[in-house]
Design a protein around this nucleic acid. Structure first.
Length: 564
RNA sequence: UGACCCAUGGUGUAACGGUAGCACUCCGGUUUUUGGUAUCGUCAGUCAAGGUUCGAAUCCUUGUGGGUCAACCA
């Protein structure tokens, strides 16, 4: 068995090195640490696929740890949504844990820090503390409370915990170095007073630990071997290590923080704050609006877990800022759906065709292949009759040779049916075409094997029988923003780039009757149009289809070029 | 005018001192009862300047460009 050597990303290389220099393989343990204050998005998928992927490659456990140290922003709703998304992506965590599980331990260690004279209670306003903090280019100055006695600090901290102080009046700070070039080392805050009810601990606590204090120590408690986070935490590593130094027992494994570049996607935004804004200002219908880059949005849009995982794999991991082309994501879903999605016919923008030489009352059942890419997909029956709908854009009275579709006096094949020829049109007072009169070649029935059926006709178009078609709502989604990097413009708000055409609703599309029993989540290809799925709003009375992604359309591209 | 990180085709990512490769995008050909798919092909890259070396995308120096850091957010 020769296995192709796959190149390792830099994090895998670090792990391999650690393994080579003595770390036991069974000590490997990872974690995915979301804050439950928003929904997971495609950027998080990078981290999820990375951490859980490492878990899979090394057969190591991965904890799901909610970083719930800020009760002011966090909610159970988000916890539930996050769990659902990770499971949907197909990953299994070892333990479901919460930073709040460790509040007591964290508190005890804070006391330890005070006793070691490594922490003190500061009784200044946040403005004063900020003032003394200095700037990246100027060092800070010491707090007047820095040299309080251990006893004073212990007493004050006790009072903070008991709720004797107001929010904002007192904080516990680590005593490190106000002159450090790393702002985070300038006596960072460890605990603040917050009289908020916590989604798990209720009103047990009046003080809550800050991220830096909670995160590294939680990694230590869980014995996480590699704590992987995004690049903006690089500066935190020094503090992460300092905190660990205070409590580390060499008998235990010492977690290691490493950072990679967060994943950005073109034509969208990827910050929870901005996504929340879109939701709260009703620019989208919710966190799961099919235009959102959230996992739930992509799921509703029709993306599969596999396509997202493949995307993550292909996009890769590195340490440089990046904006991955959304075309890569679209490639992966099209690539998968091409193999799996049943083909059906739907007419979105109909014009009536009357086949004048087809008997008035006649109906027939034709056989249509479900998926040319999948032999096992079988076939279905499609009803045909004298009056059908085709797409308006599939007909032109006159057109040059490049136009392969229906035009006067020329032939075109109706997919799975007959070859027809257009003879005349009927127009209304505005000059709009209301009917196209055609004749069909009776011997040209698809699959009949006749000479006529094998005739080379350049164009094939889709259609639905008017008498048999059912009406449905179709939602055509496009990118949410018109700009490649909407939040990269210093003097412009990202919302200025919202695409006004990101959603077009077609209330009365006509679809083939086989779709009548479609269930929410079903995926299909509307032939020659794109991939669609059944939206969560869909009911048996009003079927609703979302366009996941259009098919590649080289004709439209050509047309576009000619117009420019 | 500080510290730290980063720099490879349009985009993303490999090459770990020894022929710059892969994927997406773009463009073109062939096939096709989806102007889809498939398939073949074209265009296109090591930020710059020095240095080390038989040999540098890779190591060193300097410069340039980009990013991060001054929440009681994570």
């Amino acid at each position: 068995m020769s296995e192709e050597k796959k190149s390792l990303n830099f994090l895998e290389q670090i792990i391999e090195e650690d393994l080579a220099t003595g770390l036991a393989k069974n000590k490997l343990r990872f974690r995915f640490p979301p804050e439950p204050n928003g929904y997971l998005h495609i950027g998080h998928a990078a981290s999820i696929c990375l951490n859980f992927g490492l878990g899979e490659t090394y057969n190591a456990p991965v904890n799901l740890r909610f970083d719930d140290t800020n009760p002011a922003k966090e909610e159970q709703e988000y916890v539930d949504a996050i769990k659902k998304d990770i499971q949907w992506l197909g990953f299994k965590w070892d333990k479901e844990l919460y930073s709040s599980d460790y509040f007591q331990q964290l508190y005890d260690w804070a006391i330890l820090l005070i006793n070691k004279e490594k922490a003190y209670v500061d009784n200044q306003s946040s403005a004063q503390i900020a003032e003394q903090k200095g700037t990246p280019t100027e060092s800070g100055s010491n707090s007047p409370f820095r040299n309080q006695t251990i006893e004073e600090n212990l007493a004050l901290f006790e009072k903070m915990k008991n709720g004797d102080f107001e929010e904002g009046s007192h904080v516990l700070r680590a005593k490190i170095d106000m002159k450090s070039t790393n702002m985070l080392m300038r006596d960072p805050i460890i605990y603040r007073v917050l009289k908020e009810s916590h989604h798990r601990t209720g009103n047990d606590w009046n003080i809550y630990p800050m991220y830096d204090w909670a995160h590294g120590e939680s990694d230590y408690i869980e014995q996480i071997s590699h704590s992987i986070c995004t690049l903006e935490f690089k500066h935190h590593r020094e503090l992460y290590d300092w905190f660990l130094d205070q409590i580390y027992d060499p008998k235990n494994l010492r977690p290691k923080q490493r950072e990679f570049a967060r994943r950005n996607l073109s034509y969208t935004v990827m910050s929870k704050r901005k996504l929340l804004q879109l939701v709260e200002e009703n620019m989208v219908s919710g966190w799961d609006d099919p235009r959102m880059p959230t996992i739930s949005g992509l799921r509703r849009r029709g993306y599969t877990a596999k396509s997202i995982r493949n995307f993550s794999e292909t996009a890769g991991i590195s340490k440089r800022d990046n904006v991955v082309d959304i075309a890569l994501l679209e490639f992966h879903i099209k690539n998968e759906l091409n193999k799996t999605a049943p083909r059906v016919m739907a007419v979105l923008n109909p014009v009536k065709v009357i086949i004048t030489n087809y008997p008035e009352r006649k109906e027939e059942i034709l056989i249509a292949e479900n998926n040319p890419e999948d032999e096992n997909a079988g076939s279905r029956e499609v009803s045909f009759s004298r009056e059908i709908y085709i797409e308006k854009e599939d007909f032109r009275e006159q057109a040059n040779k490049k136009f392969f579709r229906l035009k006067l006096d020329k032939e075109v094949r109706l997919k799975n049916a007959y070859i027809i020829k257009a003879n005349s049109v009927v127009k209304d007072n505005n000059g709009e075409i209301t009917e196209i009169h055609c004749t069909y070649d009776e011997d040209s029935k698809s699959g009949s094997g006749s000479e006529a059926s094998k005739r080379k006709v350049k164009g094939t178009i889709h259609w639905v029988s008017i008498k048999h078609a059912i009406q449905a709502e179709v939602r055509l989604y496009d990118r949410l923003f018109t700009d490649e990097a909407p939040d990269s413009h210093k003097d412009k708000d990202f919302k200025e780039f919202i695409n006004p055409d990101s959603l077009k609703i077609i209330k009365k599309a006509f679809i083939e009757p086989s779709l009548k029993s479609s269930k929410i989540g079903d995926t299909m290809q509307f032939q020659r149009i794109g991939y669609f799925n059944v939206d969560t709003d869909s009911t048996s009375e009003n079927l609703v289809f979302n366009r996941t992604v259009p098919l590649r359309d080289s004709w439209a591209k050509k047309e576009q070029k000619n117009h420019n």
